[in-house]
């Protein structure tokens, strides 16, 4: 590196002699930052999505590279949001790929003071058994002379953060099992 190049590498030199007199643009750029490209440019594909937070329903573009989500941006095509996202929507990359996400099934035994891992298949089987038992033990054929054909043994809460198709299966399955205590955040 020659002396001239070295001196020109100083941001203050570029700020004093270049066009960027406030030092907030080109003058402040390092050699490294000059060669950076946004993650959005190197994505393999852009998948159309919708923000999962509030009910405005802003459009999202999900950038994917090598099978992983690398960036989430507002969708400029959306007539709802015109490309904008709020602080929460802008943070949804962290929501979906952040280290806070639990990726294993966890199980707390009765009276235990800790979690342990359970494989998904075992957990599903145990849950199915518990639903069948709770349903049976708290079954009610009638009340006050009127047929009720239901179980009060288990309840479900949630759905407002889920898809329509998911809510449909929740309502359909639990109703067919005779459960009536099926609720979600719309009540709250």
């Amino acid at each position: 590196m020659g002396v001239r190049t070295w001196i020109e590498g100083w941001p203050v030199y570029r700020q004093a002699l270049g066009a960027d007199r406030t030092g907030r643009g080109a003058a402040a750029k390092s050699r490294t930052s000059e060669t950076l490209t946004p993650r959005t440019e190197t994505a393999d594909e852009v998948v159309k999505s919708i923000c999962p937070y509030c009910a405005v329903g802003c459009g999202q573009d999900v950038y994917v590279r090598n099978g992983a989500v690398t960036q989430i941006e507002g969708d400029p095509d959306s007539p709802v949001s015109r490309g904008r996202l709020c602080p929460k929507g802008s943070a949804s990359l962290q929501l979906t790929t952040g280290s806070s996400r639990v990726q294993q099934v966890l199980y707390r035994r009765p009276h235990s003071d800790h979690w342990e891992h359970l494989d998904l298949d075992t957990a599903m089987d145990m849950i199915a058994d518990r639903v069948i038992a709770a349903r049976r033990d708290h079954w009610q054929d009638e009340q006050g002379g009127a047929r009720t054909r239901r179980t009060m043994g288990f309840a479900s809460l949630g759905g407002a953060t889920l898809d329509n198709e998911e809510n449909y299966l929740i309502k359909k399955l639990f109703t067919a099992l005779g459960a009536v205590q099926i609720e979600n955040q719309a009540r709250v």
Binding site: N167, Y168, K171, N184
Partner: peptide
């Protein structure tokens, strides 16, 4: 102005005790 992404949907296709879809 509802607060969840599909709180309207979960009312239309209700995970609510008093309604059917």
């Amino acid at each position: 102005l509802r607060g969840h992404a599909s709180i309207q949907g979960s009312t239309d296709i209700p995970t609510l005790f008093n309604l059917l879809p």
